[in-house]
Design a binder for these strands. Sequence first.
DNA 1: CTACGATACGGACCGGCGGTCCACATCGGC
DNA 2: GCCGATGTGGACCGCCGGTCCGTATCGTAG
Lengths: 186, 186
Amino acid sequence: MAGSERADAARNRAAILAAAADLFDRDGAEQVSMNDIARAAGVGKGTLFRRFGDRTALIEAVLYPRVAAMLTLVEQGPPPLGPGGEPVAALHAYLDSLLDFVWTNRTLIRALEHHGPYAYYANPSSQYWISELARRLNAVRPGENTDYLTHVLFTALRADVIDYLVSGRRMDPDRVRAGLHRLAGS
Amino acid sequence: MAGSERADAARNRAAILAAAADLFDRDGAEQVSMNDIARAAGVGKGTLFRRFGDRTALIEAVLYPRVAAMLTLVEQGPPPLGPGGEPVAALHAYLDSLLDFVWTNRTLIRALEHHGPYAYYANPSSQYWISELARRLNAVRPGENTDYLTHVLFTALRADVIDYLVSGRRMDPDRVRAGLHRLAGS
DNA sequence: CTACGATACGGACCGGCGGTCCACATCGGC
DNA sequence: GCCGATGTGGACCGCCGGTCCGTATCGTAG
């Protein structure tokens, strides 16, 4: 059957994704080598690269379902996060969700951030989060130039930044949240 | 002579620093291996590690004189950047200087940013820049809690962020500058 | 049930990295 | 000119991400 996946291949793909997710979440993505993942999945290294191409793609594949879940909430969920809500509430709900998402998946996202020059920003998901952020900011501040503010807010939502503030500086996550909302304006 | 450096050792140290600075500035620090530097300096790899310990320390050593120069201006130069100026002007002069410093040395600073979890923030220079920023912010906004704002501003001054905005997004550096000043408040 | 091409497998292998080690060379005070 | 302290350089180490290819497995056509 053309375009379809052999049964053993599908089994291995699932095993690799599960093993990678486990190891990444437990040890931090930067500490886990491709060999580690292959061994944990009970699979040869070649299989792993054949399925996913390279390390970055594997990380993105692990992250993908979590991105998709959040995307669904943003695009089709109930207000204020979903469409149809009042602009100020929509903006704040969006910031909260992003903050939560980044915090929960910080080890994976950090690994993407620290790969290549603009690799993280070039990621399609990032592009989407940024443009959606710009949209919601503009709805709250029509006419204003929110370009720079958009990027500052997005940068303040980087995993390494949040992680540094919360884990390194022991800043209360609610303080971070409040700071973000304050920057975004009422 | 105890504590002193043999003549050949001093010569090699200078050669290594010069070669490293050249290569880093020309090719971007992330592209340059320790072997490259050793070869360019006409020195064995062992010598390079004996002098500087590891890659991070070498990068810091290359950056050090530039940091020291800026430090002198901040601590002993004429107002508004140096001490004695009016608080608002002092803050804005400081932001401008930091922006300029980061942009000029972006390849070196990026290399530090992408090393270990909090390596960049743990760097003594960073600690100083941050605390000085907090001081000047507080002088302008007495009584307010400027903790989070301080870190957001400092993050907005990361080399990878500025580089992404200016080189990647083609944002006018003056726009970045204006945005920073706006965030810092009048 | 068999035969057979397409597909997938796994681990030896590759080049290059940061970092270490140590037999040997050089330096410089006496 | 002697000789211990200091410095040197490149072979070497373990590990990384990524590739290659002889072999095993799959699933279909007959």
